[in-house]
Amino acid sequence: MISLIGIAVFILLAPVIGGLIAGVDRRISARMQGRVGPPVLQPFYDVGKLFEKEITVANETQRFYAFSYFVFMIFTGALFFSGGNILLVIFALTLAQIFLVLGAYSAYSPYSHVGAERELIQIMAYEPMVILTAVGFYVVTKSFDVATIALFDQPLVLFLPGIFAGFIYILTIKLRKSPFDISTSHHAHQEIVKGVTTEFSGPTLGIIEVTHWYETVFLLGFVYLFFAFSPIIGIIAVILVYLLELVIDNASARVKWQFVMKSSWAIAAIVSVVNLAALYYLRMV
């Protein structure tokens, strides 16, 4: 089931697409705020710049964590786009995230430390919903394999409307968009400076940026699965979802972590119980 093409395409194209998405994102955000905004290629300039800088570290181990984060994020995405087991994909994603958190912890800096704690709270907040999304896929398609799920000939979103809504909710956390950008953000000035990434600098930070691109593409791939019955509708849906996230991002202010945690758990619990129970009921009838 493992398609090498999927892996190769992901590894080569994801950073390009991810970077472009980030560029368009900044551009559209700027327009929403009545500004001109940076060039679409700006994220690439940023990362290029970071790699031109001197290597500075808070400690020796930091680079290892950043690198591991990078490697496992690619692993996650590659596994996903090659049609692997979706639960395994989620576990690999968690592993990658944990490496980022550990990198932040290792720095012994108050800002990155608070960032790390909040990042963990974020993970705790979105993790159940991600797993339950996979479970939802399974209940409908009888398979955990992305390849099989993607080939399902009916629109999954019709079977899983609640789970889809819940997933969109936590997608805001995953994309680090306001109001849920509690652990680090794309924007300037946050009460905890840059949270988890505070202590990463130069090329190490560059690696983390690229990793974010990979992650964005992977997450949008997840969204696509809901609409995979028709590629065109799927891509349109992904674009619409991203635009929706942008509007949310620009229209809301950051909330406290307590709210992030409570609301995402409440939503995950409600939508999954209702949606899954309905599916079980339908199947029994």
Partner: peptide, 9 residues
């Protein structure tokens, strides 16, 4: 930000 300038803090 047109010039890619970001206030990082």
């Amino acid at each position: 930000e047109r010039f890619g300038i970001i206030n990082t803090g």
